[in-house]
Design a protein around this nucleic acid. Structure first.
Lengths: 143, 143
DNA sequence: GGTTAATAGTTACTCTTGTTAATTATGTGT
DNA sequence: ACACATAATTAACAAGAGTAACTATTAACC
């Protein structure tokens, strides 16, 4: 299968460009969107949780969270633990999530046009398999 | 197909990390590797050709080419046209290409382990279809 | 043929994102 | 009580991409 990964990476660039164009309208980027999605799913979270989930170093998450806090999309939840910072979406954050979610879903549909459910299913399995293989490779060198 | 694109992007991060780790051993990165691959396929090229192919702005290509020239992997080809710069791989560049090519192919195989040719074929078609859809979307807004 | 317009490449600057290392503050375990 | 681990932050740095402005050269056209 010649060129599979090359096309994978090439397509990624195109996709990200569209996603970021879309999110830019809301003063967001994909990296900020990831935090929003994570909070939408988890309700509340610490920064370390997000760091582990996306495998991004903590300083990166600190920056993302600061920017989202500044734009009023997330807020800190009062907690007895004064070491960790627990955050959640504000109501404005939830609203923005909904709006973007719809736009992104529409984009995804238009991009998947002409593909059958079965093809998408196999593509999904392909991704999961690759992910597994990479992660198990990493496991062997103890990461 | 819920989460298809999320997984796509997530997997991309993992993949790039491995590719860059591999290329780092040769003082390369994926962005430099792209130029090498393009020159391997095309023989000679101008900077604008590369810029168009990868859809990266010209200053980015200028930077990549400068770095590759400094490390002696590409060189300028004498030409009558003094406006455009025609470049090609040096013999050292071709040697490095071969070495990296083998390593990358091995990495790709290990990452694709457990997938049938048919599955890879469908995944490839999936990527091509997405690419087409995105590009035709762009076409409509005249890019 | 000479002026105008387009093109190739570069430079300077900015932005986003990510990394490592060091620091502070707080919590846990023994 | 003390040593150790953990959460978060700051600072410094690097890779990569983008825009705008500029130079030099070529192509186009009247």
């Amino acid at each position: 299968m010649e060129g599979l990964f090359r096309h994978y990476i090439r397509t990624h660039r195109l996709l990200m460009k569209h996603l970021n164009d879309l999110l830019e309208k809301y003063q967001l980027s994909y990296s900020l969107w990831q935090v929003i999605v994570y909070l939408k799913d988890s309700g509340t979270s610490t920064l370390v949780d997000i760091s582990n989930y996306y495998q991004v170093e903590k300083p990166g998450i600190t920056r993302r969270v600061r920017r989202l806090q500044e734009s009023g999309l997330i807020k800190e939840v009062p907690s007895t633990n004064r070491r960790e910072k627990i955050i959640e979406l504000t109501s404005e954050g939830k609203r923005v999530y909904q709006v973007c979610r719809e736009e992104i879903t529409a984009l995804e549909h238009s991009i998947s046009e002409g593909l059958t459910e079965e093809e998408k299913q196999i593509a999904f399995q392909f991704l999961m398999k690759i992910q597994d293989n990479i992660l198990s490779k990493e496991g062997f060198r103890s990461e």
